[in-house]
Design a protein around this nucleic acid. Structure first.
Ligand code: MN
Ligand code: MN
Ligand code: MN
Ligand code: MN
Lengths: 218, 218
DNA sequence: GTATTAAGTTAGTCTTAACTAACAAATTAG
DNA sequence: CTAATTTGTTAGTTAAGACTAACTTAATAC
């Protein structure tokens, strides 16, 4: 079994290698707020454990094993977030820090029970997919709200870059997953959008916000 | 804030000093499965933090602060056990190890929510009292089943020395908290009891078992 | 294509929390 | 009351995971 520290390195490697498939020591160091020499050392240790492919001066690549174990920790994180929101009544802005701790609990039974009580959820409270018990996960083909055109009718599907502040911002505007939104207009200068939803007849959203909202067209 | 390790020393000190009010380094060492020199060192560190009164060669005594912090960890442990049983459907024999981990989660909100959802429970699934938010707790004046006499009618109130094996033993005999038990006879030689409850018309319980069951007379 | 800058590694140090070996104090036995 | 045993302490070591300082390799700039 891995230490809590190793689990956090795994998660960071997994998150950062989303696009390129590999991560630099520097990026990992910045993401974890841990100095580069410490990261190098840990990578050697994790290479020995077959969690990561490591060669001096080369980018870091998770092994198949490393990828699966990372996904299983993320599964525990997201199941926990969903459980806290659905079964305990927490807001979607309150659950990340608690899940960050509970994801390290060693108890297959606990997470199996959460999954069962939630009826095997596919998404967490932020619309992010929950990896299955084998560590498999797939994103649906969502669009960013920022890429939509005036007249489009869309449904809120997921939030990316989910900080407390951003989620509270969305709360204040009553924007939540599943919400149907109509795009009224787009300011060509700065791509600010004017949208309409529920009883909000004219809400203005900056491009910064719109780039963080994933939607389904329909 | 204290480390997970310090929290476990606090709990052990609290548990072991139940009767005498103090603990020997030796007892603590055995209880935690940690060698005596390590314990001595940690006691000096915790004395510096005002969690324990430490003087060379003298018994260890928790400070008021130490006692309160220990009780608050135990509160988290027992709230968790109760939550797992009442809200998630775990058996009373399954929850201790999970609670042993969750008790270290740093999130006042999580435990406040558990308490709220459980309607501020006073006892855990084993009948043990849950300390309140100020670390205050009191045991009711229960008797051991082993101290009861033939003819007595009692109600199961709590289990002491709650190992998985013992709790599974009770499960097999359908013995649970709140159960009404009538003492039919006591074998004078070894204090074995013959008892009757629900549809169990004649169940024989060894003295070892009876000493671990706390009951209320009525 | 060399010089500068950025990224990565090596070597050595620190802290926490464990250990063993050796010694000292306290307790218990005779 | 002394001797043996148990309990507790001191000193020194170890492993994990962090750090800084110094050096090396790779990338970028001119
Ligand atoms: Mn999260
Ligand atoms: Mn999430
Ligand atoms: Mn317990
Ligand atoms: Mn309990």
């Amino acid at each position: 079994m891995h230490s809590l520290v190793e689990e956090n390195y795994l998660k960071a490697l997994f998150a950062l290698s989303k696009d390129k498939g590999s991560v630099s020591v520097n990026d990992l160091s910045k993401h974890l707020n841990i100095k580069m020499p410490t990261v190098t050392n840990m990578m050697k240790k994790m290479a020995f454990k077959k969690l990561v492919h490591y060669e001096s001066y080369k980018p870091l690549i998770l092994t198949k094993k490393g990828k699966k174990e990372a996904a299983l920790i993320i599964r525990k994180h997201r199941l926990t977030e969903m459980y806290l929101v659905e079964k305990m009544g927490f807001g979607w802005e309150e659950v990340h820090n608690i899940a960050e701790q509970i994801e390290h609990i060693k108890s297959p039974k606990l997470f199996a029970k959460m999954a069962e009580l939630l009826d095997y959820p596919k998404f967490d409270p932020h619309g992010t997919p929950i990896p299955d018990i084998n560590g498999e996960m797939e994103w649906k083909a969502y669009s960013k709200l920022s890429e939509c055109k005036p007249g489009d009718m869309v449904k809120m599907a997921a939030v990316i870059n989910t900080t407390d502040e951003f989620l509270k911002f969305l709360n204040r505007r009553e924007i939540h997953l599943g919400l149907k939104i109509k795009i009224k207009s787009v300011e060509p200068f700065d791509n600010t959008m004017v949208v309409k939803y529920k009883n909000h007849l004219e809400e203005t959203l900056s491009n910064t916000v719109c780039k963080r909202l994933l939607v389904e067209r329909f």
